[in-house]
Design a protein around this nucleic acid. Sequence first.
DNA 1: AAGGCGTGGGA
DNA 2: TTCCCAAGCCT
Length: 313
Amino acid sequence: MLQQTQVTRVIERFEPFMTRFPTPAALAQAEEETVLALWQGLGYYRRARMLQRAAIDIVERFAGEVPLEVPSLMSLPGVGRYTAGSIASIVGKARTPIVDGNVSRVLARLYEDDRPPDDPEVVSDAWARAEQLVDACLDPATLNEGLMEFGALVCTPATPQCNICPLQDQCAAKAAGRQREIPVAKRQTKKVTMHHHAIVIRRGGKTLMHRRAKGGLWAGLWQAPAIETGRRLTTTSLLEASELPLADVEYLTSTTRLLTHRRVHLHVHRGVLRPRVRCPQGADQRWMAALDLEAAPLSNAAREVLGLAAEMK
DNA sequence: AAGGCGTGGGA
DNA sequence: TTCCCAAGCCT
């Protein structure tokens, strides 16, 4: 959960998830939809699927016990060098380094490393420096947690608290007065603009919902049926493009979501089915009552769309 | 190896 | 408003 996600955001999700899935075996046996439901709103939903696959692996290959060695951990889906190092050092007490976003920043400043932090050679150097520290330290678990916490609370990205920093006399960036400009900003991926034309259809207190494809954005999550294009559609062309048996669509409102790599304009419509037609239900299309919607895995974007449609009623 | 993959808080 | 960035990983 903590991969690319702030601690404060994870805290509220951790207990419910662990209560529902207290062991790898419990997670391994669950329906994917149940796992996604407890993950909804957290983002990066692939993590949830990979975590469940890791649980299955742990049951099958490690007798249900989470391995505590870096190579075994890294053989699990979704577990990279950082996650493996964290578990091995903090849980397994192994003398192994970790480099996350925080540690990377702390080290860059400490050594006045002004190279682009995502460059493979710079990453490799950061791991080597972290390894030096963990080899020299008293307690690897405390060092690793401490480095991350230090980065999150003191050696922060925009305005580091150098005045209270215990390393201010040893920091090369501070000595050069460059702590604000190191590390250099990562190159941002350009946001591609997308238009999602959502059609909210209600009948008898239920809402027609559609499950997104297994790959790509919001994979496997539910949403109001939508047409996704690079350019905005008129209601007329939307009506033509939709495969639903619609009598009419009415435009309600729009909103925008900014993702890491995408700017998604969500255009909310109300759809009216042709009278007396049946909407085919299947694995990927269902009528959902309010209670179903609560329990189903929806992205926050999909929930916003439903909320906006309800407001405009 | 560069880009896909969410969401929200803070500057 | 807009941009940056989070306890990264996979392809």
